[in-house]
């Protein structure tokens, strides 16, 4: 970890929701960093805590959810959890921007898309109405919207899903933020449109130099976009590695299981290697390792002792007892690609 240069550093982040069903430990001891300009993928299934992690970076957790004491979020050297609400608001959109999955709900239906992009410049930079509009139209054109001058006067419902996602990218990247958090930005889109939007995100990122924290469940998207990957399960990061390492030599059985469970064009099998069971609710993680009841390699230690993150190799960390037990690890023979 390079504390001095990391753009974003998250340490021991915990977000709990207290309700009638008990305490849901949605995020529970998450640590990671994002460097300037890099793309880090945050991967996991529903209920893994990846979206709650993203929202907590912007301090957008509403009661009964709470970021627990002891959590640290450091961004450009500033402790975000110590900022007052006014300074946090200035930061959102300007230095950290967010792109959501569902562009229809993320846009205001009663304002034109041009107004909504222009508003970003007016709020954060005090640009005049005319100047902000001009910048909005330029930015919309940069996202590949043809005839941007006219399209800027359209309302969100007049645009297709792919175009609305371009508008969101225009809003997010208008002020060249240091970090863009993109939460499943292409999940709602068709494949050919997804390809366009991912290309666009890459291009804009090169122009602005922004880092991207890309939240996704799709390993195809991960392989195409990310330099590093964080895999979440049970509210924790269970594995972190450079992208090629993660695909070639996953160290956590959950990562290996996900990679083997997905169908891949060109390597057909009679059966997919499914991971048995389902993600348990956040109110009832198993004791010890949270993945153990779905794991093929469980032994006594997994129930009695919660694994801590252990370094597999420089830059590669996994939260699994196998890492510190070479004999068992060799026997488990974790492989990402189906054999």
């Amino acid at each position: 970890m390079t504390d001095t240069t990391a753009l974003l550093e998250v340490r021991d982040l915990a977000v709990y929701f207290r309700g009638a069903a008990g305490v849901a430990r949605a995020v529970d001891g998450v640590s990671f960093f994002v460097d300037k300009g890099e793309t880090v993928a945050l991967v996991g299934e529903s209920g893994s805590g990846k979206s709650v992690t993203a929202l907590s970076l912007l301090r957008l957790i509403d009661p009964p959810g709470r970021i627990e004491p002891g959590s640290v979020i450091r961004f450009e050297g500033t402790d975000l959890l110590a900022l007052d609400e006014e300074r946090m608001r200035q930061l959102r959109g300007r230095r950290i921007a967010m792109v959501f999955q569902e562009p229809m709900t993320a846009l205001n239906p009663v304002f034109t898309v041009g107004d909504q992009v222009a508003e970003v410049a007016r709020i954060h930079e005090g640009a005049s109405r005319a100047d902000a509009w001009k910048r909005a139209v330029q930015m919309l054109a940069r996202t590949g919207i043809a005839d941007a001058e006219r399209r800027a006067r359209d309302y969100p419902h007049q645009l297709s899903g792919g175009m609305r996602q371009r508008v969101l990218l225009a809003m997010a990247l208008l002020l060249s933020p240091a970090l863009v958090i993109a939460d499943e930005p292409t999940t709602a889109l068709d494949d050919t449109i997804q390809a366009q939007i991912l290309d666009l995100l890459r291009t804009l990122q090169q122009e602005t130099g922004s880092a991207v924290l890309l939240i996704t469940h799709d390993f195809g998207v991960v392989a195409e976009m990310a330099q590093r990957v964080l895999v979440m399960y049970g509210g924790q990061v269970v594995e972190a590695a450079p992208v090629r390492t993660l695909f070639a030599a996953p160290a956590h059985p959950y990562t290996a299981g996900l990679l083997r469970a997905m169908p891949r064009i060109g390597s057909r099998r009679t059966r997919l290697d499914a991971i048995p069971g389902t993600v348990p609710p956040a109110t009832a993680w198993p004791s010890g390792c949270r993945f153990r009841d779905r794991c093929a390699h469980e032994w006594e230690k997994c129930a009695s002792e919660a694994p801590v993150p252990i370094e597999v190799a420089p830059g590669h960390v996994a939260r699994c007892h196998l890492v510190s037990d070479p004999a068992r690890r060799a026997a488990a023979n974790l492989a990402g690609a189906p054999t």
Binding site: A195, Q196, D218, F247
Partner: peptide, 20 residues
Amino acid sequence: AVPVADPNVRARRIVLAGEP
């Protein structure tokens, strides 16, 4: 357009113009 789940390859993509 299908993303390839292999970081060692980059798909040769036919990027379609425009929207359906």
